[in-house]
């Protein structure tokens, strides 16, 4: 019996010295992956399934992970899974964005404000095409470096830089339009 399937850890040296045991990876990255899936367009009704898909792939492939950039590797899987779920979702009825996903440890006023900001974020992200949206989410929100993004997407570094510039510009312009339209700071 091949027990490697049930003991997904590796001993490879890595740059961030993060433990590469599955449970530790899950505990540390679940929320960020969940958030990223949502920001990459996975619908709320599919988020649990998508997150499950990501971490099953992580568990499955952890023994062969080369240990270079754990975050880049995780986000690469998340981008791919999000892509699959978006494709499936295109054939299914749409479910409205939930409003109850911000940190409720904050007070009601803060929750309301954050809900509004999150809605605005998703509105602005939806205005970016998929390629720009992906580099924007990974770079500006998840704070991956451009080389990390390039590796995660298997894309040319200069292409990533170009997409980042374009995405920032479009995002900023959309934010300014929102400000002009509502008369409020975002």
């Amino acid at each position: 019996m091949d027990l490697s399937l049930t003991r997904p850890t590796v001993e490879a040296p890595r740059e961030d010295q993060e433990p590469l045991a599955f449970d530790a990876i899950y505990a540390r990255h679940f929320r960020a992956i969940w958030r990223t899936l949502r920001r990459l367009g996975v619908r709320d009704a599919q988020l649990d399934d998508a997150a499950q898909d990501v971490f099953v792939v992580v568990h499955r492939k952890l023994p062969s992970f080369d240990g270079r950039s754990l975050r880049g590797w995780l986000y690469a899987i998340a981008v791919r899974v999000a892509s699959d779920h978006r494709r499936d979702a295109a054939r299914r009825p749409h479910v409205q964005l939930s409003e109850s996903l911000v940190d409720h440890a904050a007070g009601p006023a803060r929750v309301s404000e954050l809900n509004e900001s999150v809605r605005l974020l998703h509105t602005l992200l939806a205005q970016l095409d998929l390629a720009k949206r992906t580099v924007f989410v990974l770079g500006e929100l998840e704070q991956l470096t451009a080389p990390e993004i390039a590796e995660a997407l298997n894309a040319n570094l200069n292409t990533v830089y170009a997409r980042q510039r374009a995405a920032r510009s479009q995002f900023e312009a959309a934010l300014a339009r929102h400000r002009e339209r509502t008369g409020r700071r975002p």
Binding site: W34, R35, L101, D103, S117, V118, Q143, F171, E172
Partner: peptide, 29 residues
């Protein structure tokens, strides 16, 4: 702009899965 950066800073960690999601998904995995 600083305003855009402040907005992104504010929303960066704002979204949270429901309190049970982490346990629920882990159980499924």
């Amino acid at each position: 702009s600083p305003e855009s950066r402040a907005f992104l800073e504010r929303v960066r960690d704002a979204e949270e899965p429901d309190p049970d999601a982490e346990r629920r998904v882990l159980a499924a995995v």
